[in-house]
Structure formats: C-alpha cells, structure tokens
Design a protein around this nucleic acid. Sequence first.
DNA 1: CGATAGTTGACCCGAATCGTCACAAAAGAC
DNA 2: GTCTTTTGTGACGATTCGGGTCAACTATCG
Lengths: 278, 278
Amino acid sequence: MSADVPEDIGSEAIERLQKLGLTEYNARIYVALLRLGSGTAREIAETTSVPRTRVYDGVETLEERGFVDVGHASPKVFRPVSRETVVGQFQAEYDETLRDLSEELSTLEPADPRHEQTGVWTVSNSKAVTDRVLEFVEEAGEEVVYMSVEELLTDGIIDALAAANEGGAAIQIAGVSPATRDRIETAIPAAETFETLWEWSDTTAGRLLMVDRDTILISVLTNDDVPEETAIWGSGSYNSLVVVLKAVFTWRINHAHRFEDSGSVTDDADGSSSPPEA
Amino acid sequence: MSADVPEDIGSEAIERLQKLGLTEYNARIYVALLRLGSGTAREIAETTSVPRTRVYDGVETLEERGFVDVGHASPKVFRPVSRETVVGQFQAEYDETLRDLSEELSTLEPADPRHEQTGVWTVSNSKAVTDRVLEFVEEAGEEVVYMSVEELLTDGIIDALAAANEGGAAIQIAGVSPATRDRIETAIPAAETFETLWEWSDTTAGRLLMVDRDTILISVLTNDDVPEETAIWGSGSYNSLVVVLKAVFTWRINHAHRFEDSGSVTDDADGSSSPPEA
DNA sequence: CGATAGTTGACCCGAATCGTCACAAAAGAC
DNA sequence: GTCTTTTGTGACGATTCGGGTCAACTATCG
C-alpha cells in the first residue's frame, strides 16, 4: 500500500555493485541471495526479474569471483558469502591496483612537475577546483590571499590555510561574514580578515586565490541549469593573468588595509596588459 | 634498438586505469600527458596512437573528473594533475562507495546468517576457499584440525589459527614438513603437529579442515591446464559430509596420536569409510 | 585571399551485456 | 511403465558503449 516499490529493495546496493564492476544481472543475483539467505535458480529469478536461464551464467561468474557457493542438490542451491567478505575482496582488489598504479605513474612523471607556465589553465569541476586550491596553498611560502563566497570556504580550505600559516606564510582572507570570522580566528589567529575586497555578491564570482604573488586562481559559478564552478589559473611572474591580476589585487588589499596608501603597489603592470581572453 | 616497444611505456598504468573505470582512450591520454608534462591535442595523438579528433572528447571527460586542466592558447594545451591527486580521487571514491555498499548490504542480510545447513557446498576459486577457511576458523570454539599441502599453509591461515587458539580452541595441524613445523610452533606453541594423517602426496588433494567436529571442508587441486583449487564444505551434525568424514578424520587423528588406541572413536563409521575420492 | 592547422560533430564497427527462446536432461505424477 | 513439470545448457537477436575513421567548419598566418 505504501509508496514503496517492492523491486527497489536493495537497488542502491545493486547500483554500487555495478559501479564496482559487476554486471547488472550479477549484482541483482547477489543481492537477492543475500536477502534469501540461499536459493535456487528459480527463486532468484522470481525475486529479481532476472531471466531464470541467465541466473546460471551469473552465478557461475559470481562463484569465480568467490561471491557465492553452489550447493549440491537436485535443484542447485546457491549461497552468498557474507557481505564482509565481499566488501573485503573489493577493498583488497582496489587497494592493490591503486598502490600499483601510483607506483607505475611515479615512474612516468617527468622530473619538473610544473611551474613557470606561461598560459592560463581552466578547471571545470568544483571538486577539482578545490583540489587545485589546496595544492597551491600547500606550496605557499610567504603569502596567501583567499577570497570567496561563504559556501566555498570549507573546513578543508581553512585547514590548508592554517597549515600554510604554520609554515610561515601570511594569510589574508576576504569575503567573510562576521559569523565565520570567528571560525577563522580560532583556526588561524594570525590571519587577517576583510569583509570583502570589492563588491561581487551580485556577480557569479566564486573565489579568488593568490599565492606568493606568483600563482592566481579565479573561479566563477555558472548556473546554466545546475550550479557549477569553473576556474582559471595561471602561475609564474611572466604569466599574463598573474601580471594583470596581481596589480589590481594587491592594490585593493593595501587599499582596504591601510587607507593612507594610494596608487598601485607593484609597478610591473598597469591596464595595458591584455586581459585573459574569453 | 633495444627490445623495448615504445608504445608500451606505461601500458601497465593504462590497464590499471581502465580497471578503475576510465576508457582506454582516456587512460592513454592521461598517461601521455603525465609523461609530457603538458601537451596539445596533436602531441597527445602522436604519442598515444589515439586518433587526434578523439583527444578532445577524452580530455573533456578527464577534465570533468578533475584529472586534467585545459590551457587557453590557440592550440589548446592540456595539463595533467599530479598522480597523487588522481590516486587520491580514486581512493576517496572507492572508500565512499564501499562504505555505502557495506551499509546497504547490512540492511539486507537476513538475521540468521547460516549454519545447520543440510547440503554440501562448493567453492571454486582458491582465494575464495581461503576466505571460507578463515571464516570457519574464526568461528571455532573448541577444536580446529587443519591439514594441507605446504603451499596452502600461508601466514594468513597460521594467524587465524593462532587467534582461534587464543580463544580457547585446540589446534591440530597435519601435513607439515619438519621445516615449517618450527614456524608453527613459534606462532602457536600449543598446537599439535603431525607429519601427515595419511598418504596423499600423490593425489590431487589440497586441504582438509574440520572445526568443532561440526564443519568440514575439503579441497582438491584440479590441473586441467592452470592449477586451480575447488573445495566442498558442509556444516551441521546431521550434514552427510560431516557425518562421514568426521568419523574417518577423528579416527585417523587418534590413530596417529596415540598408538594404543585401536578401532573407531566415534561409532558411526569405521575403516569402511572410503577415503576422499580422486 | 588561399593554405595550413585546429576543432567539432557525425557516422560505422565490434565487443559485451541484456533479453528471449528452443531443447535436452532430470524429477515427480499417474 | 509413460507423461508432465521442472531444471539445466546452449544459442540467437537487440541494445549499448567504446573504439576508429571521415568530412566539414573555424581560426591563424603568410
């Protein structure tokens, strides 16, 4: 009577098993067996909508992976191994491949990791953007300036900033509301906080990062239909993005900080540098 | 000049990446980028034998997964993220799905796990057999008897036996050579060891396990072409396999142990029980 | 303005999986 | 004993997804 669809019992588990490499049939069969405790081909077929004749194939491959035992009886009976065993198998398998992969990739990675790039790079996924931010902050030597909307100032970022601060870098954070200001001052007492460097709350701006006046990252929030974040970043003192933004950025910081200062602070760029295209 | 095939550089890594869910193209592209540091579509195509026109698709999906950044230049330039980041992404992803899976499966597992089965079950894969052995040994209360060829007495098994011994179970191990006997006595001082319970070195017998005289597992090594192990097991005092084998098994143990004893110990079987076939 | 290179999309092919069917072997009913 | 039902095995299209090639459109440069 309730809105529950009977066939959907365990569908989440089935999806995850598929993600881990099992076919849909095999995943369905295993889950059904787990619910039944044990069962014949027909019983499985009836509760899974897997064609009965295909249950045998599925069970066979599951047996090869060590996920079911087959019972010797006139109608063959199948029995699933415990979920701990299955999860353990997967865990072991992926631990191994990941370990090997890491090792193999390390032999391929070129000596010079990166740096002193001349171009401007884009990162599309929000998680990837965060990764890049963390990466840069981690490498920070002297100074980190970070400005973002509230949602993008996560604990992970704060932790990374705190770590950079421990390493001797000055931290400046902008765009914080009085509420989160406390959070930051607890985690990073030495950090300077600003309300905002400029007005952008009505734009699609996402975040803004500058590390050692040498690496800059800017992101925008595109809301075509679902909210997504896209960032561009550049590194190196000759990088055009860095050259342009460093100027306006540092000017704003000094301006917001000390009201006596006027004009640009660094003299290596003015408005004539071409802005990043598109 | 050397026998190295140039295209095979990183092929292992490529295979593993595919195993983790990337397509062949995407895996090849990422590995190539890692070797190049960064590169254009053409450079990638030349070093990977991936059709150049397909590099764009691949790079796009890789970007969505956060594995590459795209550079804004007239020929687009692509840059891989560090291998640590990639491995970390995979790790996080699989940790999450495995955790969720385990949770979901636990809600499906029936209350009564198993036990008091009447049938005889088979397990095909050697790793699965070991899993089952460990499972049974873990549940042991009073007694474990284990006999196997040398190769199948691994450290994992010995550890499990030692743990069972800690829990109060008597351990009896047969089929050990004098060499490995030392290993066992170090790990499990309280264990009894036998040279062998009977001659089977010329058979295809693999191993033999009896737990609490209630669960029995036997395996054979099939050498059709590649060596494989297949086991059958049964549990419960009314299980036919258990009934038959318990008799011959315990008789042999007592026989090997105390030479004064003669005749059967349990009265439901005597020498007429056939030895494990084939 | 034409040539070269970069970029995008469309199309075809093969492998793996889904889904169904036909048929032999076995078990049970009469 | 035969007859019917169930069980097990294999084969066959249909569909999906990734691999592979091609044509066409765009930008850049001489």
